[in-house]
Amino acid sequence: FMAADLSALDLLVVQIDGLHLGDDLVLVAAIGVDGEGNKHPLALVEGATENAATVQSLLDNLVSRGLDPTVPRLFIVDGAKALSKAIRRTFGSAAPIQRCQIHKARNIMERLPKENHAASRRVLRQAWELDDADKAEKLIRNLARRLDQQWPGVAASILEGLDEILTVVRLKLPKELRRSLACTNIAENMMGTIRRVTRN
């Protein structure tokens, strides 16, 4: 599959996610989803970190195999800044990028005391369920404002990449589709296979 021609695939979504294997190796995987909802494993590239060079190598491989960089499609990423930067460099500054909401919530909770988890999760879930991106953004900004006094670092983390957390809402996708495309779960089956095959 690493050399397959991609020009015949009508991909609407490309998800890119990294998988850490031990201390020294990261595998960055790309999976495409077509208009019928079928998943297509596209590529796998290894690197020391999930940095811009590793990601750029993956994207260059996809384009060289026929993924047209002029066709608009949604990109789903785990939140690494290197991913967004490389995607915009390759597919244009207007390429819609959705950051994984699960990764974002996990990162926020890891930095908050346990007693704040339930209320913060509730606000995030409520915002992500809204059909109005402006209202969702307002809810998230209010959460950051409330936390800013005691945990300014967490508040900054909440606001970082805010525009990319609500992309699927701004695109006005149906709620069922938003749930699938708001996180990097599409790649979990492939990542599970990689973990199983490489565990020794």
Score class of each variant (00 low, 15 high):
152 P>K: 01
129 E>C: 05
41 P>L: 00
88 R>K: 11
152 P>Q: 02
72 P>R: 04
173 L>M: 12
105 A>F: 00
155 A>T: 08
115 E>P: 13
79 G>C: 04
27 L>C: 11
104 K>H: 06
106 R>S: 11
71 V>M: 05
22 G>R: 06
71 V>Y: 14
82 A>T: 08
17 D>Y: 10
110 E>V: 10
193 T>N: 08
195 R>N: 12
48 A>N: 11
27 L>H: 15
1 F>P: 02
2 M>D: 11
170 R>C: 10
195 R>C: 14
111 R>Y: 11
94 A>Q: 14
104 K>Q: 02
95 A>E: 06
2 M>P: 15
57 S>T: 14
94 A>M: 12
70 T>R: 13
95 A>H: 09
199 R>G: 09
87 I>W: 04
195 R>G: 15
116 N>M: 12
195 R>D: 13
79 G>N: 01
134 D>F: 04
86 A>T: 02
86 A>Y: 07
99 R>E: 03
180 S>H: 02
70 T>H: 12
147 L>Q: 02
40 H>W: 13
10 D>A: 12
108 I>A: 03
151 W>G: 04
60 D>G: 12
42 L>Q: 03
30 A>M: 08
74 L>N: 06
11 L>Y: 08
13 V>L: 02
81 K>A: 10
155 A>E: 06
107 N>A: 03
56 Q>T: 10
72 P>C: 05
16 I>L: 14
122 R>A: 12
116 N>S: 14
89 R>H: 08
40 H>A: 15
119 A>S: 13
182 A>C: 10
152 P>S: 04
88 R>P: 09
123 V>P: 02
53 A>Q: 15
112 L>A: 07
193 T>K: 02
47 G>Y: 03
125 R>G: 06
39 K>I: 02
193 T>W: 11
71 V>N: 05
5 D>Q: 08
47 G>N: 02
64 S>P: 15
177 L>H: 12
78 D>K: 01
76 I>F: 01
85 K>F: 07
145 R>D: 05
184 T>G: 03
8 A>L: 11
19 L>Y: 15
81 K>E: 07
187 A>S: 13
197 V>K: 08
163 D>L: 07
162 L>Q: 04
113 P>G: 01
73 R>N: 05
102 I>W: 00
78 D>C: 04
146 R>E: 02
195 R>M: 08
80 A>T: 06
191 M>K: 01
95 A>C: 12
94 A>N: 15
2 M>K: 10
158 I>H: 02
148 D>C: 07
47 G>W: 01
52 A>P: 14
138 K>Q: 11
131 D>Q: 05
138 K>I: 07
67 L>K: 08
29 A>L: 15
24 D>I: 09
51 N>R: 03
50 E>T: 03
102 I>D: 01
164 E>R: 09
143 L>C: 10
188 E>P: 10
140 I>C: 02
165 I>A: 06
164 E>K: 09
170 R>K: 06
10 D>E: 13
62 L>E: 00
15 Q>V: 09
111 R>C: 12
21 L>K: 13
128 W>D: 00
42 L>W: 06
49 T>L: 03
24 D>F: 10
66 G>V: 01
51 N>S: 14
4 A>Y: 01
114 K>A: 12
91 F>G: 01
11 L>T: 00
150 Q>V: 10
7 S>K: 13
140 I>D: 01
